[in-house]
Design a protein around this nucleic acid. Structure first.
Lengths: 133, 133
DNA sequence: CGTTACGTTTACGTTAACGTCATCTGTGCT
DNA sequence: AGCACAGATGACGTTAACGTAAACGTAACG
């Protein structure tokens, strides 16, 4: 039990972030560590949330967007109207993410083409270099 | 010919950005508009570059990363060693983008699961509401 | 019981990516 | 010639997401 509670330093090493970052995320209400006296203790829930935060950042989402996304994962005991709002927000985010994935796929294809072109060009230059040798 | 040359305002309307942004991108050497006197004229090349810039931003890349990426698309008359460096950089970016795409796919699946859970929960709440009616 | 290590709060500093004036400059009407 | 207007050039302001430094608390250890 107490085993899953991480101190701030353990948390930092586990997820490669700084103490400042964790405190900052708490201030922004992205994390809610418990307290032993004044000391922070990060629960399993906080660790899961941090993973989602870091992934969200890699996708280019702002912390504010991420905060809203996080709420989608802790639906527990929401009222009906609130839950409906959550679902609507989730649909929007899902659409965003799918669009981004598709756009990424296109970008990947384009980059591959460019690289093929570059390889061809390199082969030409190599031929010329060999002739001049 | 002169038709593809856009003034700054035309460029702004076409791509939904501000003049400041375009000047900023020029200062950061992401765009290289020609000049008629002191006035900027954005060529077809600048428009293509701007599209790539905006897409890169949606992926969460920094302008500096994007600047390097842009060079991958204008390989034209590079020397051999330079071209080899370009290819290496391209491979790295490709790997990054593929990783991000895969990670996005996972995130999408997870969000879908959460949404299914929410829908189930909503259906329950609806049943209860109807009983109380 | 002092000090070392870890943690806390408070507050000011920094970087990226622009926004927002204020002030010129050129250009096409009328 | 005069004037509106688009565009240019500084220069300072702003926001997000932390970095960094100072000053303090506290728990264990030799």
């Amino acid at each position: 039990m107490t085993d899953t509670q991480l101190t701030i330093r353990q948390m930092c090493e586990a997820y490669d972030v700084t103490p400042r970052t964790l405190r900052f995320y708490e201030a922004k209400e992205l994390l809610f560590p418990e307290r032993r006296g004044q000391q922070r203790l990060f629960t399993k829930r906080d660790q899961a949330r941090l993973k989602l935060i870091l992934r969200g950042k890699r996708f280019g989402f702002s912390l504010e967007e991420i905060r809203q996304l996080l709420d989608l994962y802790y639906v527990g005991d929401q009222q009906r109207t609130q839950l409906e709002r959550t679902q609507i927000l989730a649909r929007k985010h899902l659409a965003d993410m799918q669009a981004q994935r598709d756009e990424l796929q296109v970008a990947i294809e384009e980059l591959k083409e460019q690289m093929a072109w570059g390889e061809k060009r390199l082969a030409e230059l190599e031929r010329i270099d060999e002739q001049n040798a």
